[in-house]
Design a protein around this nucleic acid. Structure first.
Ligand SMILES: [Mn+2]
Ligand SMILES: [Mn+2]
Ligand SMILES: [Mn+2]
Ligand SMILES: [Mn+2]
Lengths: 133, 133
DNA sequence: TCTAAAATTTAGCCTTGGCTAAACTGGAGC
DNA sequence: GCTCCAGTTTAGCCAAGGCTAAATTTTAGA
């Protein structure tokens, strides 16, 4: 009986992980594109205030996904790098799958940004297999 | 430039709508299955305390998705009924699509519970078309 | 070098959605 | 009709993630 509610519990957990996934992914992108990730750029790309971004980054530092010294750039920990790679891979597969079945690029981008966090590894495997065909 | 961040804004909006969608869907289910939706059953099915469910239902009432009198059952407004129907339809299509491409039932249930809220009407149309084939 | 602008941090506010403890109410059953 | 119990509500706590205003630090340019 209580098993019925498990999917909602997992949904709540997914939402807790979401911010971490999107942020480490973004930090990796910025490091690749600009050499380093700065708070201002992170905030700009997410469309939030620097204060909000700063608070989220503070939590991510506490949770050991990133490191940074006051007023300096942000770096991924090894653990953070791993999460970034996995997240980017998942993101790309979901996005490409959507495009493959005929979703317009812009819409695929929006949908993938949300869907990616709710795709299990089992489902991901199946999407990837379809993508290769 | 600021356009780049739109997908994240939409993601945040989707998360605000999520609880409303899942709750009205559940209220409709309970009404169908037990004649009426009671707070205790709603809380049980979501795996949260009655206090949490009560607070969420209070907000949904404020936002005119539901009505209820103190210590009484919960009812959907016309607007709430419409949202429940649309949500259930979207949920079903996503779930069935996942099963169709080979995702095991239990996993499809979990993934669909999260993914459904991030599937645009354009993507939904495409999933439905594939489902019919 | 010094100063002003830009970047970052801090303070303090709000809403949502979690929780436990405790109070209250309606109704079932004696 | 009364009692008591299950169901509901209220009070009060917490964390996350949104904001603006203000303080602080870094850095670029004259
Ligand atoms: Mn995302
Ligand atoms: Mn649903
Ligand atoms: Mn759902
Ligand atoms: Mn989500």
């Amino acid at each position: 009986m209580r098993v019925k509610s498990r999917k909602f519990t997992q949904l709540r957990n997914a939402h807790h992980r979401e911010k971490a996934e999107d942020y480490v992914e973004m930090i990796q992108d910025l490091a690749d594109q600009q050499g380093e990730a700065r708070l201002t750029d992170v905030a700009k790309r997410f469309g939030v205030s620097t204060v909000t971004a700063h608070k989220i980054l503070f939590r991510l530092q506490r949770e050991k996904w990133i490191t940074s010294k006051p007023y300096r750039a942000i770096f991924l920990t090894p653990r953070g790098k791993r999460l970034a790679m996995e997240s980017k891979r998942r993101h790309k597969i979901v996005y490409q799958f959507l495009k493959k079945i005929g979703v317009p690029e812009e819409i695929a981008q929006i949908d993938a940004e949300g869907m990616e966090h709710h795709v299990s590894s089992e489902t991901l495997k199946i999407l990837r297999r379809r993508l290769k065909k």
